[in-house]
Measured scan of single mutants.
Amino acid sequence: TDCSIVSFLARLGCSSCLDYFTTQGLTTIYQIEHYSMDDLASLKIPEQFRHAIWKGILDHRQLHEF
């Protein structure tokens, strides 16, 4: 599957948040998979999107835990 942040955000309906990640040089889900809610806040992601992205990260982690 596509591991880009572009497609990750698109699946979550949060494509408008892409610039918050790319300006930090973040391009793949693996770069953010251990981010906390505070990390997302420090990227200045608007609160209404933060929870959806956080949930997406948690779902991603569960899929990749062996």
Rank of each mutant, 00 (worst) to 15 (best):
L26Q: 03
T23K: 14
R50S: 06
R50Q: 08
Q48G: 12
G13Q: 10
H34M: 10
E65L: 07
W54R: 05
H60I: 10
I32H: 01
Q31V: 01
F21S: 01
Y35H: 06
S16N: 10
A52L: 12
W54S: 09
L26G: 00
R11K: 12
S36A: 09
A10I: 04
Q24F: 05
H34D: 14
L40Q: 01
S15Q: 15
G25F: 02
E65H: 08
G56W: 01
L12Y: 10
G56E: 04
H64V: 13
E65I: 06
C17Q: 05
L26H: 04
D39W: 02
L43H: 03
G13M: 04
S4Q: 07
T28F: 09
T27K: 11
S42A: 13
Y35L: 10
S42C: 09
H64I: 09
C3K: 08
Y35A: 05
Y35C: 06
S15C: 09
A10G: 06
Y20D: 04
Y30R: 15
L40K: 00
K44A: 11
C3W: 07
Y30E: 13
L58C: 15
Q48Y: 07
E47V: 13
L12P: 01
S15T: 14
L18V: 13
E47Q: 14
Q62E: 15
C14K: 05
K44F: 07
R50P: 01
Y35P: 00
H64T: 15
H60K: 08
R50D: 01
L58I: 14
M37I: 07
F66Y: 15
L9K: 00
I5W: 00
D2T: 04
R50V: 12
W54G: 04
F66D: 05
L40G: 00
Y30V: 11
I29Y: 10
G25M: 03
F66T: 05
G25L: 02
S42E: 15
Q24R: 12
Y20Q: 07
R11M: 06
S16D: 13
Q24M: 08
L26N: 03
L40N: 01
Q62N: 09
D19T: 14
D38A: 14
C14D: 02
L12C: 07
M37W: 08
F8H: 03
D39E: 10
S7N: 14
R11E: 11
H51R: 11
T23D: 12
V6Y: 06
K55L: 09
I53K: 03
F21I: 01
R11C: 05
F8G: 00
C14G: 03
L18G: 07
C17H: 02
V6M: 13
L63W: 09
I45D: 00
Y20E: 05
S7P: 06
G56I: 01
Q48D: 10
T27E: 10
E65V: 07
D59G: 12
L9G: 02
A52I: 09
L12V: 10
Y20V: 06
K55M: 10
I45G: 01
Y30C: 15
I57W: 01
I57T: 03
A52F: 10
D59M: 08
C3T: 13
M37H: 11
I32T: 02
E33W: 10
H64F: 08
K44Q: 13
F66G: 04
T28I: 04
D39P: 01
D19F: 07
S15Y: 06
A41F: 06
K44N: 12
E47M: 10
Y30M: 12
G13A: 06
H64Y: 07
Q62T: 12
A41T: 12
I57L: 12
C14T: 05
L26A: 03
L43T: 03
L43S: 03
S42H: 13
D2H: 04
L63G: 13
L18M: 14
Q31E: 11
H60Y: 13
E33A: 10
L58A: 14
D38E: 15
H60D: 05
T22I: 12
F8E: 01
F8R: 00
G25S: 09
D39G: 04
S7D: 09
A41H: 07
F21Y: 01
